[in-house]
Design a protein around this nucleic acid. Structure first.
Lengths: 196, 196
DNA sequence: GTCTATAGGCAGATAGAC
DNA sequence: GTCTATCTGCCTATAGAC
């Protein structure tokens, strides 16, 4: 339950999620273990099982928290951005911030591991992409109506292209250790929406 | 050595590579084991070690063979395509053919696993992307010269965007089990090169 | 909540027979 | 070349003490 820690304090479950999240984002779901997490927190593996019974439950919790944070970031973009063009730039910046820490998008990484994931995690990964698509679709439709964005065909398809490109740009940029590689691709992608 | 099999026959090393390749492309490098490969071939794990001393060597061999095949595919495209636009369509079709078998690009998958890979595999993965970039750069420059393709800035940067987008489109399409999702993204990507 | 201890299984790998 | 047998280590997970 919440409210057991003093203000600013971080509970054990949260610290476990923080470490596991970073490990999954950098090494993949099959590339980390309870032992890795426990060692980093100065705990034993058994201690982790109290908070998350199994790796599957931990994985679910990771995706759910990540999805909530992402949704909050999108709400913040909606609230703060002055234009649809600014919204798209801010959206790409969310990805850039993840990559900056040498991490892959959690759900992009899990998309690679998809075949090996428990069913509940699979469902949650797909929902993450669906939610992103829905948000982007709305922004793109608004932009088209305002005449601020230009693209052919359905907004939903353009939204899928944007997600694919940003995920792919993260994926490829990481082996090069070069965030600029991502930035250039994202900028070029969004530039295609400016022209007539 | 080569030449030990009768025409059309396939050696054990090749059959090992075939199975391991499919497993890596669908499950990732940390999502398959010697036991998986051996079981599928009706062999024991020990038998595999005769052909590939360790998982690292097997992984290197996988990338090297994949890179050679990819290079051959690019040569075939150069030989057969009537236009630069046709070359790019054929390039995207190479990715689509991989996805059709519900596989991720081998090196795209290994890019996700990158942090956990042995050094030699890392080098080979980056070289794969570099080679693709170089080929695309040449096509894009030719296209610009002919006036058949239109893009802003350097061909090399546009090449990176194309690779990122195709890899990302494969990555995201697989959880949906929907090759059409990839096809639409690829088509939309290439369409951005047509306009003025 | 976190520990020690341990289970049971699978991982990658090797030795040596055939 | 492929096998049997085995090793060592790590994995996920559980029982039960504190």
């Amino acid at each position: 339950m919440l409210g057991k820690q003093a203000a600013g304090e971080v509970g054990t479950a949260t610290r476990i999620l923080d470490v596991a999240e970073r490990l999954v984002q950098s090494r993949g779901f099959n590339g980390f273990s309870y032992a890795n997490v426990a060692a980093e927190l100065g705990m034993t593996k058994a201690g982790l099982h109290y908070h998350f019974p199994g790796k599957a439950e931990l994985g679910e919790a990771l995706i759910n928290r990540y999805a909530i944070r992402f949704a909050e970031a999108l709400q913040a973009i909606d609230a703060d951005s002055a234009s649809v063009r600014a919204k798209l730039a801010a959206y790409a910046a969310v990805y850039a911030d993840v990559l900056k820490e040498q991490r892959m998008c959690l759900c992009g990484m899990l998309a690679a591991d998809y075949e090996t994931l428990p069913a509940a995690m699979r469902t949650a990964v797909v929902r993450f992409f669906d939610d992103n698509e829905t948000w982007l679709e709305r922004v793109l439709e608004q932009g088209a109506k305002e005449g601020a964005l230009h693209y052919e065909g359905r907004a939903r398809d353009q939204a899928q292209l944007i997600i694919s490109t940003l995920e792919g740009a993260m994926l490829v940029a990481r082996p090069y250790g070069d965030p600029e590689r991502f930035r250039a691709a994202a900028h070029r992608l969004l530039a295609t929406l400016d022209g007539g």
